[in-house]
Design a binder for these strands. Structure first.
Lengths: 110, 110
DNA sequence: CATATTAATCGTAATATTGCAATAAACAAA
DNA sequence: TTTGTTTATTGCAATATTACGATTAATATG
């Protein structure tokens, strides 16, 4: 099928999986890491930095933008991208809450 | 294509994306949350808890197990699953390092 | 205006993921 | 051994993702 039955899960579960999904490709991790690394914003440099074709990078940027994790600013013929700080922080809260669940009290089964 | 060119990315980028990928489906989030919630371990209860067919749940469990995030203990005819604490903690370290990158010094582009 | 530059979009091929019915495998109990 | 119970595997259909060539859109520059 390839179709996740989102209606049978909680909003939280769907939200976490949507964020995780966008992190589920190394090119998008590379894009985000590069945006974190350089202080100023980049655009087509990402195509050189990462070894993928321009349409492919553009597509990955679109997905990141669609989830609100980055924003793009048109400057002449080029577009300058950067991390969307507020949304990134909000995403972090959701993800950290899931990842940092308490394990100490749990007893092992095996 | 549908094929990520893993060889052009760093080990870290590939590792992060692999972890994220497994979190990229709400059913697997639901499974993990349930394993966190109940103190003792579960097996076929997950099929009832989540609304998916038994082979589907089994497949999701397989992926979680393959990444080492859970472990299964055979008890008679049933299998008891639980979070793999050590591996979960190790995964958390990798993911937190990526998610919690410093944003304060970065200037906005837009 | 014509031309270059840059990024987005379209179209398409290759591959991956999801879900489940059917079946198999493993084990317990009668 | 037979039967029931539980989980894993197989096979397949439907859908999603990834990558990129070709093209378009937008803007700058001569």
């Amino acid at each position: 099928m390839g179709l996740a039955k989102t209606e049978m899960f909680t909003d939280e579960q769907n939200e976490i999986s949507l964020f995780a999904k966008v992190f589920g490709h190394p090119a998008r991790i590379a894009i985000l890491q590069h945006l974190f690394k350089i202080n100023s914003c980049v655009c087509g440099d990402l195509v050189d930095e990462i070894g993928l074709a321009q349409p492919t990078i553009s597509q990955h940027l679109k997905e990141l933008k669609h989830l609100g994790l980055i924003k793009g600013n048109v400057e002449g013929t080029s577009v300058c991208y950067c991390i969307h700080k507020e949304n990134w922080t909000a995403m972090k809260t959701v993800m950290n809450e899931f990842l940092n669940q308490d394990l100490t009290e749990k007893q092992d089964c095996c």
